[in-house]
Amino acid sequence: MTSPSPADDDRGCLRLVLAVPLVLLTLAATSCCWAALAIRPSGPWDDDAYAGIVLACVLSVGAAGAVVGVWLVPSVRRVMGWWWVGPAVLAGGVAAVRWVTGG
């Protein structure tokens, strides 16, 4: 029998450590996306609601971009599958559509 290489032994721990920022950023992206979708302006004069929608969309797209940026690092991509980025990219995409359509 051969023992696993030291690099394989660390992958579980490395995956757990790298999952923390990815999960936190994904939660930020999805919660900001939810806020962008939940805010309903009272009318065309409601500038504060429109500003809130834009802010929530910008934060959601930014957090999704940060998730992609972290995942693009080769050492992270090696241990984290592409599906770790999927929910954040989806939330960022929905927020971008909400931002473009203007509510």
Results as ranks from 00 to 15, higher is better:
80 M>I: 08
8 D>I: 06
50 Y>A: 10
27 L>F: 01
56 A>G: 07
27 L>Q: 10
49 A>M: 10
9 D>C: 09
7 A>H: 00
77 R>Q: 15
8 D>L: 14
74 P>V: 05
100 V>Q: 12
85 V>F: 03
94 V>A: 13
43 G>I: 01
54 V>C: 12
40 R>M: 10
56 A>W: 06
73 V>I: 11
13 C>Y: 07
77 R>F: 02
59 L>H: 09
57 C>N: 02
33 C>S: 07
93 G>V: 02
43 G>N: 10
89 V>N: 04
93 G>D: 08
47 D>I: 07
70 V>L: 14
78 R>A: 15
14 L>D: 10
16 L>A: 15
55 L>I: 00
28 A>C: 05
54 V>R: 14
58 V>W: 03
1 M>L: 04
80 M>G: 02
90 L>E: 06
2 T>M: 05
77 R>H: 03
58 V>T: 12
46 D>Y: 05
11 R>I: 11
55 L>R: 14
78 R>H: 15
73 V>Y: 03
67 V>S: 07
55 L>E: 13
47 D>P: 00
97 V>Y: 14
59 L>V: 05
43 G>M: 07
35 A>N: 13
70 V>M: 13
82 W>L: 15
101 T>Q: 10
90 L>R: 02
55 L>W: 04
49 A>W: 03
55 L>Y: 02
56 A>M: 05
28 A>S: 12
51 A>T: 05
99 W>G: 07
59 L>Q: 15
53 I>H: 06
85 V>Q: 03
102 G>A: 09
15 R>H: 02
43 G>H: 06
98 R>T: 06
69 G>C: 14
41 P>F: 07
71 W>P: 01
